[in-house]
């Protein structure tokens, strides 16, 4: 089934087309949710809510960009809205300079490649993790992140800087990055 046919079917509220769309994009989107969420169950809840929004707002999609990107934006916003309901998330965003944040190294599983990095990201404090996810992975600017999270742009920048440093440390400790300051070495290690 082509993407166009799926779109038309979803606009007609056809269950088969909706299922096709869901099958096609839900694995990637669950990975997105998982990076934001506290655990897998929360991630699935976010995914469900996000896809309901996707299908119910299908008529607002205009063929100006990638369909996947449109879905992804909805999913990310759903995740952010869910996180903002969490008190712990709001408190963590206030930590501008989170020196001395303890990382639960033991919770990082010794697996490789993509999942390893994702799990390392999930070890970060939730405020750092969110900003890192939005900036480094989802491609939002600090201005957009500040608007989404209701924080200052400078806060977003500083949180990102700290998040990146912390992630780097974790990756080094886990021997995923061997020589972080030398590009060729860690690239070789990863690729």
């Amino acid at each position: 089934m082509t993407e166009e046919a799926i779109l038309q079917g979803c606009l007609k509220n056809e269950a088969a087309a909706q299922r096709e769309l869901y099958n096609r994009y839900s694995p990637k989107m669950l990975a997105v949710c998982y990076r934001f969420a506290h655990n897998r169950e929360d991630g699935e809840d976010m995914l469900q809510e996000g896809f309901i929004k996707v299908f119910s707002q299908m008529h607002t999609f205009q063929n100006k960009g990638a369909f996947e990107g449109w879905i992804r934006r909805i999913i990310v916003h759903t995740c952010i809205n869910n996180l903002k309901k969490n008190k712990r998330f709001n408190e963590s965003l206030d930590i501008v300079h989170a020196h001395g944040v303890q990382v639960r190294e033991e919770s990082v599983p010794s697996i490789v490649q993509a999942k390893q990095i994702v799990e390392c990201i999930r070890v970060l404090p939730i405020g750092y993790r969110t900003v890192l996810n939005l900036y480094a992975i989802e491609g939002y600017s600090h201005r957009e992140i500040a608007d989404m999270l209701d924080i200052e742009e400078s806060t977003s920048r500083s949180q990102y800087t700290r998040a990146k440093q912390m992630l780097e440390e974790i990756l080094i400790r886990k021997k995923i990055l061997t020589k972080p300051r030398e590009k060729s070495d860690w690239l070789v290690a990863m690729r």
């Binding site: 509220n13 269950a15 909706q18 299922r19 869901y22 839900s26 694995p27 990637k28 669950l30 990975a31 998982y34 990076r35 897998r40 991630g43 699935e44 995914l47 469900q48 896809f51 309901i52 299908f55 119910s56 490649q113 993509a114 999942k115 990095i117 994702v118 990201i121 890192l132 480094a136 992975i137 491609g139 990146k164 992630l167 780097e168 590009k183 690239l187 990863m190």
Partner: peptide, 29 residues
């Protein structure tokens, strides 16, 4: 490069949701 690496690796990662997620979506729609 670091951001690009993180982006690439996370993009490769996929997770398969349980059937309950689809049921919830379907029932809502």
């Amino acid at each position: 490069d670091f951001e690009q690496l993180i982006r690439d690796k996370t993009e490769q990662y996929k997770m398969y949701p349980s059937e309950n997620v689809w049921r919830g979506v379907h029932n809502s729609l």
